[in-house]
Simulated assay, not measured.
Amino acid sequence: MRELEVFRLVLPFGRRSETLLVKLTDHGGMTGWGEAVSPQPKTWSRLEETLAARLIGVDWEHPDTVLGGDSAVDMACWDLWTRMRGVPLAEAIGGTRTSLMATVRLAPDPSLESLVSRVNQQVCAGYGHVTLDVRPGWDVEPVRAVRQAYPALTLAVDCGNAYSEQGQLVALDSYGLEVIERPFAAGDVYAHASLQDEVAASVAVEVASTAELDDYLTVRAAKVLLLRPSAFLSLSDARRAHDRAAAAGWDIQCAGGQGAGLARAATVAVASLPGCTLPCDVTQPPRQNQIVTPIVGANAGVIAVPLTQSGLGHDIDENRVRRLAKDSFHA
């Protein structure tokens, strides 16, 4: 590896979230990019003080041999490695799909009428799958309103780990939900298992390691893995979680809705794996937040998997990266 550059961006629209971009350049001048969305506070200093020394001047044969311990560095290594070999990332990690169905995620709304109108807009735009964010006090009534307006719509809810009792969640189940995502606190495997025994909908859990997933698998606490590639230290770790969940007969939904576009692109690559059977959650952000071409998002409820370009499959607007960067370093 010849060069490492890291950029800290505060995205200008939406929730103005912070993201870190990693650019790796090999001795031949080819580059690979990675992204850490909402990074941990020590990520910047670790990249600058520790990981740079491990990467610069080091030759490696495969991304799995890079001792980075950072998801953005791992993504950049995969992007570089696949670009050097002229293959798409999706193909390199075992993806088999050329396109993905998408879900659209809708946040709580002050008005039920407004919520139903927003659902109507998305259905008219081509979405056949909608995920409603629900919370205690905003759950049964909005789900009932949407179901009454759209009896045949495939509907899921994301509880954001906000519930402590299952009563309202069992009530939601009567409205023909496909999935109840993240109902209880992460790691409470027995609460999830108890709910799964009570409802017809599939309970979905989110994990950041195969060890966490094994805890849920052991007690059959769910039927769906909500797989967020950026939560894992490496794409290979995310692939191993996919393999374990698929082998257990679980469905898998990939998610990655924030950031400047690179993490979304990696999510699409992982979602092309054969076990990712549920619609992908990469709801398109404001265009002003993306630094990739083409934009990562859905068109009429379908996401294309880029298979005609190597690596992540998107070009980087480096001039825009440098304009948006609030801080950067070069090693």
Rank of each mutant, 00 (worst) to 15 (best):
T96K: 14
R46Y: 11
R240G: 00
D215M: 13
W250A: 03
L195C: 07
A200Q: 15
Q258W: 03
A52P: 11
S38K: 10
V123T: 13
A211R: 15
R182F: 02
L312C: 03
L51F: 13
P12E: 01
R97S: 11
R105C: 08
C159P: 04
S202M: 06
R105F: 14
T43N: 06
A149R: 02
G86T: 03
I303F: 06
H62F: 09
N299L: 04
L307Q: 07
E49P: 00
T43W: 07
R83T: 02
R83D: 03
V292W: 00
F184A: 08
E165K: 10
L9H: 04
R54Y: 08
C254H: 08
P279W: 01
A36F: 06
V22W: 07
A266T: 04
L195A: 01
D251P: 02
S17I: 12
P136Q: 02
Q166C: 08
V170A: 01
A222I: 09
V87A: 03
G313T: 15
I180P: 10
W44K: 03
V10H: 03
G297L: 13
S272P: 02
M30H: 02
E3D: 11
W44I: 05
P39L: 06
Q309R: 15
G14K: 04
G160E: 11
E198W: 06
A300M: 11
L169W: 03
T154G: 00
V119A: 12
A185S: 12
P294Y: 01
R46N: 15
V146T: 06
L213F: 05
S202P: 00
F232T: 04
A221D: 11
T277S: 14
W60E: 00
L307C: 13
R228G: 09
F13H: 14
D251G: 07
